[in-house]
Design a protein around this nucleic acid. Structure first.
Lengths: 247, 247
DNA sequence: TTTGAAAGTGTATAAATGACACGAAGTTAC
DNA sequence: GTAACTTCGTGTCATTTATACACTTTCAAA
């Protein structure tokens, strides 16, 4: 006695995505603008929506990113599940749900994901209920819809943990980059200054970057050497992690 | 126009708990036995069940642990959300759900938690739909209900990550313990041998253990000195982590 | 009293970390 | 064209940390 399963939205489970980018100077995150609510309240939100009953969570995240920001098929890592019964408490959020959901009062648990992408590859386009989508520097975000601000903080923590175990940057930087840019990337994720010389030494010893013969052009100061990632070394370290610190 | 919210089970979201213990020799995990199904298939499962709509996820986990194993109010960390549409695929699992759920066919996303407890403090008692509850060595578990085996593996990974950043043992060992027991605990979590002398040196330099004047009794060999945890140092390291490796 | 079994201890080598300052190479403004 | 500005790029030393490794001690049991 099987029920026939018709693909349908699950009213109780959503997915939200924290997509990090890097503008060569600071860490940014992709947000959608849901427009002004009559109640006021935050306009900006993480891209996210309810899942369908026939898709798994990763698939849902990728579908939603596509629908809301035109981003396709990227690798996502889970941040965690957020299920406070009061996570939908702001009036502006309730008003907004009235306009987009069939069951706006339903209890919703959300599963958050994060990812790192090259900003240049994903000029986000508005669509669906996102009036616009765009990149905002993480340091300039102070409130978001629902519990999205909290989710962002947890995602930043996860990223900060990850950076200690795996190399980061391949998915955030253009193909050719300078060590200063990589340095700034690490500083903006870790939110603290790192010694320039020690940073360079470490990166080079790890062997994840290869110097090119080219140099930066059009900068009003000494041009920097360009590097690319050494994919084999980078991959190896991504898989195995920095295996330091085995207790 | 508020709907009145009557506390009710959410048919789409469950919580499962991976409770680790340590029998002074190997890592164990708390499982419930749901009894023989007519279809055969695994009898053992992680303690877990659907959540209520008026409780958050952590509360749900604690409630369920209490109901299924008589464990109260412990600190839990999230493993992640598991939402494959086919995670309920074994015939034995479907049969079991028929017997305990109002909507046995519903799509269920589960949020997994893990925790570390002193086995002696929680002689698990059977109750609710758990015929019995008990501790099983993690190395002797080869299949479980639903996707619980996969959840267990991910929980083990999380624990292995955690141990590199924070001290572990306070919640797993009795008040007085030997360094060999702590050593074995680390080896069973990391699943590899650690050099005895280096381990002892490191633990003692961290300052998380304090030697007692007492020694082990009734062992058929040289008795070991007993230690207790230095709570301040342990707490400090739990909060701040081993701040090594700031890139 | 011998045997077995785990406890407990030290050193030397190699590697990683962290702190620190200045000349070089370009552009821009005058 | 020269001075001023900005970022690039580099090395050393002291300290700490990691790793590899073997033998004596202490107790209970046979």
């Amino acid at each position: 006695m099987q029920k026939k399963v018709i693909p349908e939205l699950n009213p109780n489970v959503s997915v939200d995505c924290v997509i990090f980018g890097f503008d060569l100077d600071k860490l940014t995150v992709l947000l959608i603008d849901r427009g002004q609510q009559t109640q006021g309240g935050p306009r900006l939100a993480l891209p996210g929506n309810l899942i369908y009953n026939d898709e798994n969570l990763d698939q849902a995240a990728n579908r939603i990113l596509n629908e809301l920001a035109g981003i396709n098929n990227i690798y996502l890592e889970q941040v965690g599940a957020f299920g406070d019964p009061n996570r939908i408490c702001k009036e502006a959020d309730k008003e907004w749900l009235q306009s987009i959901r069939a069951e706006p009062e339903a209890r919703v648990i959300t599963v958050a994901y994060y990812s790192l992408v090259k900003m240049a590859d994903y000029a986000p386009r508005a669509s669906s209920f996102a009036k616009t989508a765009g990149w905002a520097p993480v340091t300039q975000i102070f409130e978001l819809a629902f519990d999205h601000y909290e989710i962002l903080q947890v995602a930043k923590d996860k990223l900060r943990q990850k950076i200690k175990i795996q190399p980061i940057g391949f998915n955030l930087l253009p193909e050719k980059f300078t060590l200063s840019q990589l340095h700034k990337l690490y500083e903006s994720i870790l939110e603290k200054p790192l010694d320039k010389r020690n940073f360079r030494r470490k990166v080079q010893k790890l062997g994840i970057v290869t110097p090119l013969k080219e140099k930066q052009q059009g900068v009003p100061h000494k041009p920097s050497r360009l590097y690319k990632f050494n994919e084999e070394k980078y991959e190896a370290l991504s898989k195995n992690g920095y295996d330091n610190f085995d207790f």
